[in-house]
Nucleic acid binder design. Structure first.
Length: 275
DNA sequence: CCCGGAACCTGAAGGC
DNA sequence: TGCCTTCAGGTTCCGG
């Protein structure tokens, strides 16, 4: 599931290879991936357009075009973007972008939940996102102010894209474990010390995952087809039943807001039971 | 405002 | 072995 570190890896891998290239053709095998405009207009308008730069906002990958338009991709659960994959396009290839140097970009997405947009104003798609967790603007104070205003479980707050961009299920669990905070704790119950620890943990967990080129838990792969290695550094995420690296207690799994949540029941103490 | 639940999807895993 | 059910989860939308 591509979250911030996975999308950032795709951006870094791809940027030097496709900056300055133009689209020669666009083939849509699953047109419903396209949100804006119509699939026909999407393909037609992309042809001939030059890629100025690749950017990322939260979990969105943004192709800034020389025309001023933006091609935006979201990978949701199972999407990946492959550059020049060997052989014929696989059965899960939903779109193929051919570039003017012969390069081919395959949008692969087994579960068909991925999305693409071609827009004049990227704010139309990414305008409502919260701050980037790795930007200087995201301070511990900013996180604390945010937390004060929310009584929801802290994990739900971390995963809310309008409050913080790019953190999803896996990295929220990892950050909360690193900060020794139970994911069910109400956001506005966290002490200043806990907020500071959580802020540090978020940054460290995301930076380390980027260094590991993302986590290949299920379908994610780098544009080269290689897997990432960040999953090997996970302490709790997707490690139910295995011993906690800090204390040896078996990692537990609970459900918060319909999402599987991994935690150490010993290191991350339960919030007060209010019967 | 806050929350739960469904919908979108299909491959994998579990039950019988 | 094989069919059926359930689950996974990011985002959006609907309803209580």
């Amino acid at each position: 599931m591509p979250e911030l570190p996975e999308v950032e890896t795709i951006r870094r891998d791809l940027a030097p290879r496709i900056a300055g290239r133009s689209f020669v053709s666009v083939t849509l095998n699953w047109p419903r991936t396209v949100q804006i405009p119509s699939p026909e207009a999407f393909s037609r308008r992309l042809v001939g357009k030059c890629i100025k730069e690749l950017d990322r906002r939260g979990k969105y990958l943004i192709f800034r075009l020389a025309s001023g338009e933006a091609l935006i991709l979201h990978f949701r659960m199972s999407g990946s973007l492959l550059l020049d994959p060997p052989g014929e396009p696989g059965p899960h290839t939903r779109a193929i972008f051919t570039l003017d140097d012969g390069g081919r970009l395959h949008f692969r997405d087994p579960r068909k939940l991925g999305m693409m947009w071609l827009v004049e104003d990227e704010g139309e798609v990414v305008g409502k996102l919260g701050p980037e967790p790795l930007s200087p603007a995201f301070t511990a104070d900013a996180l604390g102010e945010q937390a004060k205003r929310h009584s929801a479980p802290i994990k739900a707050m971390l995963c809310d894209q309008s409050l913080l961009a790019g953190v999803g299920n896996m990295y929220a669990d990892e950050a909360l474990f690193a900060a020794a905070i139970h994911p069910m704790r109400r956001a506005n119950s966290l002490s200043a010390g806990e907020i500071a620890a959580l802020h540090r943990a978020l940054r460290r967990v995301l930076e380390e995952a980027i260094e590991g080129h993302g986590a290949s838990i299920t379908d994610y792969q780098r544009p080269s087809g290689q897997p990432g290695a960040a999953q090997f550094t996970f302490q709790v995420a997707h490690r139910g039943g295995q011993p906690c690296p800090k204390c040896g207690t078996p990692i537990g799994r609970i459900v918060i807001r319909q999402r599987g949540t991994y935690l150490c029941p010993h290191c991350q103490r339960e919030p007060e039971c209010h019967s």
